[in-house]
Amino acid sequence: MALPLPPGLVPSEVAFLCEMEHVTIVPRQRLESIELLSGATPSLRPPRREDIPLWLALLLKKQRRANILPPPWLHVDSLRDLIHHETVTDPTGWSLPPPPPVRADGRGNARRLNSGGPDATVLSPPFLPSCTSSAPAGALPYHWFEFAEMLLAHASDDIPAASDVRSLLRDLQEVRAAKMRTSIAGLESGVDGVMSLLGVGAMELSESRGFVTGVVEGVRKLGASAEASRREEEEERGGADDDEPSDDDMGI
């Protein structure tokens, strides 16, 4: 029997992963460092800002022991810029994900964090500081939608102009969902291209996965016989010009 769950992550799983994102808080009480599986949290001393996992931040927020600093991309101006970019500047593509974090060295050059060196690991979303107050504005991180929803639900008093942010997020979500729908128009000529999903958030992926894979599957089925005959033709033609130089003949 097939697995009852659809392929890919369901929204609650995506949200669970999102809770690993680090977020900047301003603690109101002291809290000693906690040893967690993911590493020890910094010991909290008000009014020093610290980065802690989102789930812990939400817990402290609910107990009124901390205030959350929303990341710069969740401000009204940044969201307006993003919507402008999505609708006017680039109505077909996705806005790019935030650039990798860079740090300036003493000589005035910027270089990527943890690049170079043999044992450097390349960090991916939950381990990148993409939702802390040091995140760049004007770029949506991987977990933008679920992060913003959770913050709006539990810490809306910490977000400046929360109701504006909420309606802008709705707009952004709709614009991008419409883009996802129109992006399948590229399949009209058959499944030979690649769909770039760079910059698409985790929740958007989980939302549209069934639809997009369904369309691709249908196009593939409709093109299956044409594809088979094309392959046959190619094989026949390949048999005709055998004297084409291949890699073996090049004497490498």
Partner: peptide
């Protein structure tokens, strides 16, 4: 399409499917 070699029909069906799929979405 498997039985007949109708390339034009295949193209039309694919285009129909994709256009209508957008609407379905």
């Amino acid at each position: 399409l498997d039985l007949f070699d109708e390339r034009e029909l295949g193209n039309t069906l694919r285009k129909t499917f994709v256009v209508r799929a957008g609407e379905v979405g």
